Simulated scan of single mutants.
Amino acid sequence: MKLRQLAHSRTGDKGNTSNISVIAHDPADYERLLREVTPERVKQHFADVVKGTVVRYELPRLGAFNFVMTLALGGGVTRSLALDAHGKSLSSALLDLELPDS
Rank of each mutant, 00 (worst) to 15 (best):
G74S: 06
L73P: 07
K14G: 01
T17F: 00
A7R: 12
K88D: 08
R79W: 03
D13C: 03
S80F: 06
G12L: 03
L99T: 08
E40F: 05
L62P: 00
G76M: 09
R56M: 07
S80K: 08
T70P: 05
I23N: 05
L99D: 11
P27W: 03
K2R: 14
H86N: 08
K88S: 07
G12Y: 01
S18F: 00
V42P: 02
V77Y: 10
M69V: 06
R79G: 11
V50C: 07
H8L: 11
G52E: 03
G87V: 04
L73V: 06
N66W: 04
S92I: 11
A24T: 05
G76L: 07
S9A: 15
Q5W: 00
A28N: 08
H45N: 12
L33D: 12
A93H: 13
S9Y: 00
V55R: 14
L34K: 15
M69Q: 04
M69I: 05
R32L: 13
S9T: 09
R56S: 10
A28Y: 02
T70R: 02
D101C: 04
G12V: 02
V54K: 06
S89W: 00
M1C: 06
A82I: 07
T38L: 12
L33S: 06
P27D: 03
Q5Y: 04
A93R: 14
T38C: 13
I20P: 03
L94F: 04
S9F: 00
A82Q: 13
L83D: 10
S91K: 06
L99V: 05
H86A: 09
L90A: 02
F46H: 03
V54F: 09
L71W: 03
L71Q: 14
L83C: 10
R41E: 07
L59E: 02
Y57K: 07
S89T: 15
R32C: 01
P60C: 11
L34P: 03
L62Y: 08
A64W: 09
N66F: 04
A7E: 07
L81Y: 02
K88Y: 05
Y30V: 01
P27A: 08
E58T: 12
Q5V: 04
E36V: 06
L81H: 12
K2L: 15
S89D: 07
L83S: 12
L6T: 07
L34M: 07
V22C: 05
L90D: 09
F46D: 10
E36Q: 14
V37N: 12
E31S: 09
R61P: 00
H25R: 11
A7P: 05
A64P: 11
P100E: 15
G15A: 10
P60W: 10
G63Y: 06
G15K: 10
N19I: 01
V55W: 02
